[in-house]
C-alpha cells in the first residue's frame, strides 16, 4: 500500500488541491499568468488520462448497472447491484475489517512517527540520511517480495514466534491462520510499510519549524510536552494531513497485501472490499456486482479524503 502499492501509484490526496487553491486565493490571484497555450501542454497527458483512466472508470460505472459474468451477454439491472450491496450484511463486515486496518495502516504509524519526532531534540541527528534510507526501504521493494518475507515471519516456526519466544510468549500460533490474529497480522505489515514513510515525513517536517519558536518557548519555561503540543504538532499539520490521507486511503483500498498473504482467510476474517472486488470480478464471474462495489468504495474514499482535508484546515490538530 501507500508508496508500495504494486498496482497503483500512491494515493496522493485530492484533498490537498483545495489547500493549494486556498493559498492562491489568499494572494488574490491564481498562480501564473493567463495563458491559453496551457492547453497545448496538457493535451498529450490529458488524452492518456482520458483514454486509460477516465474511460475505464465510466465503463466501470456502466458495468455496475448490469449483471454480467464477463463472457456471456449482459443483462441491464439498473441499481439492482447497489441494492444488493446495501442489503448484504456480510459486506458490512468487510468494511469493518477496513476500519480495523485503518488503525494499523494509519493511526499506529502516525503515532509512532510523532513519538519519534517528539523525542528528537531538534538537533541535527548524525547519520540521519542513513536512517532515512533504511526506514524508507519497505517502499522500494515489490509487494510480492514483501509478502513472501512476511509469510515466513508469521509461520508457526517463523521469526515472529522466535522473537516472542525470547520473552517466553511463543504459543506456536500460525498467525495468518488464526481468526483473532490474522487481520492484526496483516495490519502490522501495513504499519511496517508506512511507519518509515511517516517518520521520514515528520522528521524532515520538524526540521523546518522555525527554531526561534522553541527558543521562545524554553525561555517561557515550557516543558517537553508543551513544546510538542503547541509548536511541533501544529507545525507538522500539513505533513500529518498528507500522511493521514495516504495511509487511510491505502487502508481502504488495500488489496494486494490481502491477496498475497491470506486471500481473505481464515474464513472471511481478513476479507476487505478491495479483495472482494477482485474475487467477484475474476474468481466468480460477477463483473457487474464487482463494479458496483468498486463505485461504492471509490465514493467512500473520496468522502474520507475530503473529510481529512477539512480536518487539516482546522487551526488546531
Amino acid at each position: 500500500m501507500v508508496l508500495n502499492t504494486a498496482v497503483l501509484p500512491p494515493q496522493a490526496p485530492a484533498s490537498i488541491a483545495p489547500a493549494a487553491r486556498r493559498r492562491g486565493r489568499s494572494r488574490g490571484t491564481a498562480p501564473g499568468e493567463p495563458r491559453l497555450v496551457a492547453y497545448l501542454y496538457l493535451v498529450p497527458a490529458l488524452l492518456m488520462v482520458v483514454v486509460f483512466v477516465l474511460l475505464p472508470v465510466l465503463h466501470t460505472v456502466y458495468l455496475s448497472l448490469v449483471k454480467w459474468d464477463g463472457v456471456t451477454a449482459a443483462t441491464f439491472v439498473g441499481l439492482g447491484n447497489y441494492v444488493d450491496i446495501l442489503t448484504d450484511p456480510q459486506l458490512r463486515a468487510l468494511f469493518l475489517h477496513s476500519l480495523e486496518l485503518v488503525f494499523f495502516f494509519a493511526v499506529l504509524p502516525i503515532s509512532l512517527g510523532l513519538l519519534i519526532t517528539a523525542l528528537l531534540s531538534r538537533r541535527a541527528v548524525r547519520g540521519m540520511t542513513f536512517y532515512r534510507s533504511i526506514l524508507f526501504l519497505p517502499q522500494v521493494v515489490s509487494m510480492v517480495v514483501i509478502a513472501v518475507a512476511w509469510q515466513w515471519i508469521y509461520a508457526q516456526d517463523g521469526v515472529a514466534n522466535q522473537l516472542l519466544g525470547l520473552i517466553g510468549l511463543d504459543r506456536g500460533i500460525a498467525w495468518l491462520g488464526d481468526f483473532t490474529w490474522a487481520l492484526p497480522a496483516i495490519g502490522i505489515v501495513g504499519a511496517w510499510l508506512s511507519t518509515g514513510l511517516c517518520m521520514v515525513l515528520f522528521l524532515s517536517g520538524v526540521q523546518k519549524i522555525d527554531t526561534s519558536l522553541y527558543e521562545a518557548a524554553r525561555l517561557d519555561g515550557a516543558n517537553a510536552w508543551q513544546e510538542f503540543r503547541h509548536i511541533t504538532l501544529p507545525g507538522l499539520r500539513a505533513e500529518i494531513a498528507v500522511a493521514l490521507t495516504l495511509t487511510v486511503v491505502g487502508a481502504l483500498k488495500s488489496f494486494d497485501v490481502v491477496y498475497l498473504l491470506t486471500k481473505g482467510g481464515p474464513g472471511t476474517s481478513t476479507a476487505v472490499p478491495g479483495y472482494e472486488i477482485f474475487a467477484r470480478a475474476f474468481g466468480r464471474g460477477e463483473a457487474g456486482s464487482a463494479a458496483s462495489l468498486a463505485v461504492v468504495l471509490t465514493v467512500i474514499i473520496f468522502v474520507v479524503s475530503i473529510a481529512i482535508s477539512r480536518f487539516s484546515k482546522e487551526p488546531e490538530v
Partner: peptide
Amino acid sequence: LAAAAAIALGSAGCSALTPGAAP
C-alpha cells in the same frame, strides 16, 4: 461533461462495453 460522455458511451453500443456471446 460526464453526462455527455455517458451518452457517447451508450450510443457506442452497450454490447461493446460488455462483450459476450449473444444468447
